[in-house]
Design a binder for these strands. Structure first.
Lengths: 118, 118
DNA sequence: ATGACTGTATATTAAACAGTATACATGCTT
DNA sequence: AAGCATGTATACTGTTTAATATACAGTCAT
């Protein structure tokens, strides 16, 4: 279980704990609706990352970007998967083509499209 | 088990069977390295779609587009998932922005990027 | 009517997934 | 020193995934 996912969650929770006593393992587990022992195990990477649903709640709880957290767990949200699944040919081609493009190029594409350039 | 995946595979195999006796359930199963009964069940949607690895072999066997076949199974290849997982922020934004863009717009983006416009 | 193919029905399974429940050790506070 | 809150160790559980193994029924040719 050597993923960075748990370490990231722990660091983030400990930071929040400095500012408020509401971020102990137990309190967080309570709000996530899961067992404290499970939170502990996930944070220490003793078990693999949880399900998508749990990760999304966790992201909200810690104020983190859900896509980033899912990515650390090696996953992609069902929402984004659906985008691809509905038009696999175009989006597969698009992703392979843009795979190595630098960030700024991708963001330019986003901007162009948003500005109604189609 | 009401996916279109199985029906699609069966139709395709039956077409190929018309042209050659090498596309019976047993022959195909043999080349895929799985049991004939399993092929039969998958084709009749009696069981959910197989694993990604098996779907990819199946696509090759029938001469189908792997991305399309995976999509019919509701999946996205690990290869494409990796593209997103490595840079989740940009690619998540990109996909959400392009989600509803018409095909021709997406293909234009592909062309632009390929023509070194970055 | 036998043998050699078809496809399919039925029963079972090993491993992974996604956690729960309980008990325990440690440190701090009063 | 008693109580309370921390995090964690240990053992167990229901469900899903991804198939296998074997037996069976129908068709076709010889």
């Amino acid at each position: 279980m050597s993923n960075e996912f748990g370490q990231y969650l722990r660091k983030r929770r400990e930071e929040l704990l400095k500012g408020s006593p509401d971020f102990t393992v137990r309190k967080v587990a309570g709000r996530l609706g899961i067992q404290p022992s499970y939170v502990s195990k996930v944070e220490r990477c003793e078990v693999p990352p949880p399900s998508e649903a749990t990760i999304l709640r966790w992201a909200e709880e810690l104020g983190e970007d859900p896509d980033v957290l899912l990515a650390l767990a090696g996953k992609v949200s069902a929402e984004l998967r659906d985008v691809i699944v509905k038009r696999p040919k175009v989006f597969a081609q698009l992703l392979r083509e843009l795979k190595d493009a630098p960030d700024h190029a991708l963001l330019r594409v986003v901007r162009e499209v948003r500005d109604g350039k189609w």
